[in-house]
Write a protein that binds this DNA or RNA. Structure first.
Lengths: 240, 240
DNA sequence: AACATTTACTACACGGCGTTCAGTAAAGAC
DNA sequence: GTCTTTACTGAACGCCGTGTAGTAAATGTT
């Protein structure tokens, strides 16, 4: 990278931009996503709301930056959990990924809503999607988990898939890392994603807790059923 | 029911309350959930925003009423789809339920967000949850689907469940309708719920379409894998 | 050192929002 | 025909995102 040649101006500018995001995240975690208002952020920083427009073109641009940061932190977390287990324990890695996803969501419910829900009142996602990059990473990571299970995975009546069915960027990531993997594996990875997402989303948005006391057990059952369905056996005892 | 003895006053009152909801729903489908504002509704009805407070204590109360209506219409839809197939085709019924859920969500994305997401800027769900009743219905319906498959369902390493693990109201519904069913079946029903919800939620919130062209096929694969995992065979050819 | 320019920010305004409250006019009750 | 209840208005309060004009300081140039 070399030494980043930043003038004093540029450095202060970058710091302020970062502080804006930091304050926004703190406000969000304290008072929910609605607490992210330019006026509140500015108030917190001893500024005027208009000043923020020098750093972000609009409130949605700021939110997009937040989404990107938060999504990246989530993907970092699940990837770290995966890498904490050996590659020859694919079932354990899938369980770790799924459990970490849920735990991260429980710790950062506002972050989860920011990524997977309507982030904030009238937020409109930009073209490529602020989350596109992190989403591709998550997707590729899941495909990796599936890849490790692919040989013994029992795919029942798989739809026929073609590489053109998927986003080129995602295809690029996958084909580079797993040249042998067929397109159907990516489809399976997306299904795995959906499976992990479903119960967590229901829980975070309060739909599970009104039905069942301890969603954790149900989620664990689901992850176990998932790995079994992939033809995997656990080598590591999952967390409670 | 008998003739509902409503004075002219009460009738007009009920009609206005209904019109408020109707206008709110229309505004929502036209301009997204943010378009639900008391001022906009009142403007549309030739009233003042304050007047709505004669019908709903607060904006959140109105939103709760909308959630209830919309959720009920969703549950009606999936139940109708289920009942269109014979009871001796449990796999078909599960497929029909799942596909109808997705199709309903695609037709009413704002409704789906209203039920399962953050409905509207700063909405706070009331105590029991505006959706509690409809959610219980959905849950019980899914449990019914699971009940039909329960004898041949292969539950792998099920966590041990007790009736006290679940909401008493839900337990009441289930035990009344399926006296023989063990608590683990309800847990399984919740997992089925999560499985159907996951991919649909990802799709509605735009996370799937940026990865894959045709989420329908993946969703169908997922439903098929689900019924197979329950030990069911399809009798009815599912919709494309 | 003195001037010119760029930058960061404030102050103010606009329209929109939920919500409250005093007042008014019509409808219903007796 | 009077009295009470009801339905609604209009104005206000404080919040919001967003522009625009102006200001003061930091930077760049001679």
């Amino acid at each position: 990278m070399g030494v980043p040649v930043l003038s004093r101006r540029e450095r202060l500018r970058a710091e302020t931009a970062a502080e804006i995001k930091a304050v926004a995240l703190r406000l969000m975690s304290e008072g929910g996503p609605d607490a992210i208002s330019l006026r509140a952020i500015a108030r917190e920083m001893g500024m005027t709301a208009g000043a923020i427009y020098g750093y972000y073109d609009t409130r949605d641009a700021l939110v997009s930056a937040l989404v990107k940061d938060v999504y990246t932190s989530l993907v970092d977390a699940v990837e770290a959990a995966r890498d904490a287990l050996p590659a020859d324990d694919p079932a354990g890695r899938i369980l770790a990924w799924g459990q970490t996803l849920r735990e991260w969501a429980l710790v950062n419910p506002e972050g989860f809503r920011l990524i997977y829900g309507d982030p904030v009142p009238g937020y409109q996602e930009p073209e490529g999607g602020a989350a596109a990059e992190a989403a591709h990473r998550a997707c590729a990571g899941l495909t990796g988990l599936v890849a490790a299970a692919w040989p013994q995975a029992v795919i029942r009546q798989p739809g026929e898939y073609d590489w053109t069915d998927f986003d080129p960027i995602l295809v690029g990531l996958v084909r580079e890392e797993f040249p042998e993997l067929p397109p159907a594996a990516v489809a399976l990875a997306l299904r795995v994603w959906g499976r992990m997402h479903g119960l967590v989303a229901l829980e975070i948005y309060g739909h599970l807790r009104s039905q069942v006391k301890d969603p954790a057990r149900i989620y664990l059952d689901e992850l176990r059923d998932l790995t079994r369905g992939l033809g995997l056996d656990e080598k590591t005892t999952p967390r409670a």
